[in-house]
Design a protein around this nucleic acid. Structure first.
Lengths: 259, 259
DNA sequence: ATCAATTCTCGTAGGGTATACGAGAATTGA
DNA sequence: TCAATTCTCGTATACCCTACGAGAATTGAT
């Protein structure tokens, strides 16, 4: 399931935090000196979530890790939700998506690069799979991803609106698949149980409950060996297969790339 | 974000609960009479989650609704996680996926039926979008969905393994998209803020932070009207577009349907 | 040197979650 | 009548976020 981020009251404050490195901010001279800064808080949250799961990145957990009182964090971030947004945009920005001059040749290779970077990001930060992708942080990291994919789809012979539609479609597909893969790995890690072991634990299903007559198609595929282990696991193969089919379909509809 | 269901200790007990209506169970005569049954508990959890969100379906919330003490529920379900699994399989089974003799003609129409039923299910039960689809409940509702899609893909000229791969691919695509759409609607409902209003709240992004030079593709699409409101919203259009392209790709690779 | 203004620090308190434990109540068959 | 069985549920523990407000640190002005 996904963590819900509630509506933050002050979008301008949220934007200022997300874009905090955009312009060098004026130095403030008055008052007690801060012992931390926002980057430190965000980095600590990410580190804890990476190693011990999203629940470890609680306000209390981050504060303890930094050696300060819990409430001290509220000087730097307005709320837990906001901290999570900052963590997400930070890791979104870690993807190395090259500018116009350094991209690989061919739009499919460019899509593949986006997919690889995104999947690597989810692998490094599996807790991302527990954060809702709806209303994402509107920060530099998110915008860089959209810029890249819009640029890629712009090389196809599509109308401006269809460029946007295609970009959203590919992003959704890749991000969803990467999220599911990361979540799967995360569950294997936290439960210490592989997917195969999980299924084996449920073998009683077939012996006791499964009704062959109610499930003729499944039975036929089973008898024909369709569920046997393949060279790679089904999820990975399904992801590749689906992405290739999706790009085939887009290309067929659009005509060849322009560059 | 997604709710994590932890590893349940006793898969056999979990299976027995999921398949509780498979065979009429033997009557037990001894001991105090139960005041509830599992179906009542599950139905109450679903009703509360539908109307007040997944957090309302807490053990305390369900117990209060049923007029019993919180701990009484543990007589009927072993844990909160298990209750959630039962709720999920229950609503998965609500989809009306017709048997071999009552299916529409043509595999694409059959896929569309699955997609429509699944989207309607998510619309009725938006909290489903907050439950992880990894390691789903292995119950009658989940199996009925897989049976249906395997039957559909079996009509294409695919190898047994590719039937499975294609079925998994289509399921993942449709379920993910339906989940995102439901989550989006849920957020609009709980925050009372439309997506347009959410973006308007962040218009400062464009005025203050957005750098045209760093985002040439986005700027070009913007100037060409690619982000202007269309007849339907982008998410819905992207979903339809992507599904059609995916089915195009599958069909092109497989050859025509056999029936 | 003093003091007001400003800013950061963080303890306490309150309201939420799941569930282990164990005592007590209800029911049946012997 | 009583032992065995099963259901009921209050209490206690251990987490979570954050509103509030008192106190500490630092600066610039006087």
């Amino acid at each position: 399931m996904t963590v819900r981020r509630s509506a933050e009251g002050r979008p301008d404050r949220a934007l200022a935090l997300l874009w905090r490195n955009h312009r060098p901010l004026a130095v403030k001279a008055k008052g007690r000196r801060p012992s931390l800064d926002v980057d430190e808080v965000v980095a600590t949250g990410i580190r804890l979530a990476d190693s011990d799961g999203l629940t470890a990145a609680s306000m209390g957990g981050v504060a303890k890790e930094l050696g300060v009182g819990t409430m001290t964090l509220y000087t730097y971030v307005p709320s837990k939700d906001e901290l999570l947004e900052l963590m997400v945009d930070q890791v979104l920005g870690e993807r190395e998506l090259p500018g116009p001059d350094q991209r690989p040749a061919g739009w499919r290779a460019q899509v593949a690069l986006y997919a690889d970077e995104t999947r690597a990001m989810f692998r490094r930060h599996p807790w991302l799979s527990q954060v809702s992708p709806i209303r994402p942080p509107v920060g530099p990291g998110m915008l860089a991803g959209r810029e890249y994919l819009l640029a890629v789809m712009s090389t196809l012979a599509l109308s401006p609106r269809d460029i946007n539609i295609a970009a959203v479609t590919v992003t959704s597909y890749v991000d969803s698949a990467a999220s599911l893969a990361a979540e799967s790995a995360l569950i294997e890690r936290t439960t210490g149980q592989s997917h195969d072991a999980w299924w084996t634990d449920r073998s009683e299903l077939w012996e006791t409950y499964f009704d062959v007559e109610r499930h003729p198609a499944m039975t036929a595929v089973w008898n024909a060996g369709g569920f046997d282990a393949g060279p790679v696991d089904v999820a990975a193969e399904s992801y590749q297969y689906g992405l290739e089919r999706l790009l085939d379909g887009i290309e067929a509809k659009a005509g060849p790339a322009m560059t």
